[in-house]
Structures are given as C-alpha cells and as structure tokens.
Design a protein around this nucleic acid. Structure first.
Lengths: 228, 228
DNA sequence: GTCTATATCATGATAGAC
DNA sequence: GTCTATCATGATATAGAC
C-alpha cells in the first residue's frame, strides 16, 4: 500500500495510452494528451518508460504476453485431448481467433479497447511497431502454423500462410467493428444490444473464417474473367 | 503545353503524397516531406489544395472516382448478361474485389501504391478520413449490397453485411501484402516473382472470400467451446 | 503561380529543484 | 518519484515580394 501511488501512475499512463492510441493512432496521440488523461505530470512518461516508442511497446506487451500464453494453453489442451492425431481446423481457428475475441469480455485484460487498438495497429505504417509485433507474435504464430499444416496436409503450405493472413485481416475488421462498419452500412445493427453483440460476432466470424480456410483451392488461370 | 508546368506541380504533389501517406500514414507524413519529394515549394500544397486534409481527400478522390465507376460498369455488364436473374456470388465478388485488385496492374491509376494506401486507410483512426471514405463509397456499396441480397435470398441481410465487412478486411490485408505478411511468416514467398504475384493473389483471395461468403450460417450458441 | 520568410503553435525530451 | 521550466525541433499555414 505504501508504493501504491507509483504502481498507479504507471498503470494509469498505460491505460490512458491504450485508449488514446486506439482512438487516434500512434502518431496522432501526443504525450501531453496521454499525461493529461492519466492526470500525471508530463515528465512521468519519460521517467517510467524512457520514450514514447517504449511506452507503445509496453502497452502491447502488457496484453500480448497474456494473450499469447492463453493461446498456447488452449492449443495444448486441444492437443492433449486429441492424443496425437491432427486437430480439426475449427479447433485451431478457435484457439487463435476465438481466444482473441473472448478477450473483449475481459476488462482485466484490456477488453474491447485493446482489441481495437490491436486490430488497427496491424496495418499501422510505423516500421518500429510492425517489427515489434512480428517479434512478439513469432512463437505463437509458428505453433499455430504447424498445427494448420498438420490439420490440412493436402493444402500447400503457401496457401495456408496466405489464408492465415486473410483471416487476420477479416478478424481485424471484425474487431474494429461498428465504427468501420459504417463503410458498409448506415443501419445501426439494430437487432442486438452491446452485451449480446460479442456473443453473436464470435460464431459469425468463426463461420466466415472456416469457410475461407476450407474453400476449394484456386486453380491458377491467367485468363481472368472481367467482362467488357 | 504552355500550362504543363502547373498541371505537373499538382500531379507531382498528389503522387508524392500518395506514396508518402502509404509509407508513413497520414499523421506520420509532413508537408515538408511531401513538397520535398515532389520538388515543389512548401507553400504549393496550400495554394493548390488549401490544407493537408484537403490534399488527403484529393489523393483518394482521384483514384476512387475511377475505381467506383469501373465497379458500376462491371456490375452493369454482368447484370445485362444475366438478363434479369440474380447474379452469382462469384460475379459480385469479382466485380467489387476483383476490380479493386486489378488496379494494382494499372500504373495509370495508382497501381499497387494506391491499393496499399487504401488498405491501410480503411482502419485509419482519423475521423475525417473515415467519414470521407464512407461518403465516397456509399453509392457503390449500396448497389453491391443489393446485388448480394438478391443473390443470397436465404441468408439474413445482417449476416451478408457482416460478411461483406469481413471480406473488406481480408482484402485489405491481402493488399498490404508482403509487408504485413511478415507477421505470419519469415519466408520470402519464394516461389513467385513480383509480376507473377498478383496473378496468383487474385484467385487465392477470391477462393477465400467466396468460401467465407458461402459458409454455413452460424448457429447462435451461448455455450462456447474453449476447453479448460 | 511561385517563391522566401516568417508567424504561431505543438511536439518529444530533459535538467534540476524539491 | 514528481514537479516546473525550458530546449530544440518540426509542424501547418500565411503574408507579401517577384
């Protein structure tokens, strides 16, 4: 309790930064906004994190460490259950993308705010962010790719890698959610209230991802369709 | 020919801005970088476009006007060919996403640079950009949504809207391409040279999108899987 | 239309008192 | 650990000469 104030300062900065980076992007957020929102002194960021870049990395590390451990844990459980035979694609997709989406319900791990930040940042232009994320993601990515290779031995590996990539994109937009959905429709997705929304989104996205993952392989045909 | 210099200045600014916004994002690009790269005076941007925001909008309008007309044209052609009966989902997906991807080969309309800028900007946090894009996209979106509703009458409309959204996400990542693909894999996608790459990417993405679009409908089941 | 010069302000970072 | 004060830089935008 004696040191509670210090912990609070650090955490408050991280929380404010998470929310502001989500809302305005990395370049679009200033340290003055962050420290203002966190009600701490401007110099506190540099004292606790050293720089704005390091702060950004810490915002992600705090959440991704937990997420990726959880993903490993889920895959371990499925594999133990399967006892040596290859997993079903639906289990692998659930372990990776389902675990991610279920974070949205978990406010102690950032909830929807972090998810949307992550979804947006995956297309973020800043080089140092992409490099950092690629590094953070690497081990869990390798495990899941291997699981997919085993689950779909008849599909060329390059095809699986691309489809994983496509799934990341679809999920990223699914998370960005209602905001970006304005591109597609004006309707407020009327039917559902917000607590219900995630419960419906998860199976929705899962169906889509699995449909794409298991789609018939493309035949490479240089004479494309496009009518005059 | 007498006015060629002026036209050149405007176009050179737009070209430079397109490339730099693609590489560093809107907030991450300064007008000094833009005018430097275009070899024009710093004041030229404000003279020709009024502000940085207006410049950004003009960068998009220049390409999107053409793209969306092309999309309308392709859908018209398919519908004329079909003579009153509903189109196939594959035709609609080709008209919207195929037309987009085929821009990449067309350097006169921005080619890969604009495509990647577009893919990244769809998740851009800046409010004014998203508002502008939603407005620019609206008519063509409505046409394509209607076409999908007719093509898939047994699928609830809300489901189609979400799947359209997921398809946008997958396509966005497909475009961002090799850069963002570093998240998934280290390999240089070795097999293919760059001219070949797009010819393979289009059928690849089309298969994935159609698989997702036509996937079995999710059943809404609150008791999800996630093993302990 | 194009340029130089500059106004005005916000940025990230740090030094040094407490 | 926290604060104030400040630095050096770079941002957008504009006024006014040519």
């Amino acid at each position: 309790m004696a040191e509670a104030r210090n912990v609070d300062t650090r955490e408050r900065i991280l929380d404010a930064a998470e929310r502001l980076f989500m809302a305005h992007g990395y370049e679009g957020t200033s340290m003055r906004q962050i420290t203002g929102e966190a009600s701490v002194n401007l110099a506190a960021v540099n004292y606790h994190f050293g720089s704005k870049e390091s702060l950004m990395q810490e915002v992600f590390r705090r959440r991704l460490d937990w997420l990726n451990e959880e993903r490993m844990r889920v895959l371990d459980a499925y594999e133990k259950e399967a006892g040596g035979i290859a997993l079903k694609p639906s289990q692998i997709v659930d372990g990776f993308f389902g675990t991610l989406l279920r974070m949205a319900d978990d406010e102690t791990h950032g909830g929807m705010t972090f998810l949307r930040l992550l979804g947006r940042t995956l297309t973020e232009p800043s080089e140092f962010i992409r490099t950092f994320l690629a590094h953070e993601y690497k081990p869990v990515m390798e495990r899941y790719k291997e699981a997919l290779f085993r689950a779909l031995p008849e599909v060329p590996k390059a095809e699986i890698v691309w489809r994983f990539h496509f799934m990341l994109g679809a999920t990223s937009y699914a998370i960005a959610g209602t905001d970006a959905l304005r591109l597609v429709t004006d309707w407020q997705i009327e039917e559902e209230d917000s607590t219900d929304r995630l419960d419906r989104l998860v199976p929705r996205l899962m169906s889509f991802l699995l449909g794409g993952l298991r789609a018939p392989l493309p035949q490479y045909d240089p004479s494309a369709v496009n009518p005059k």
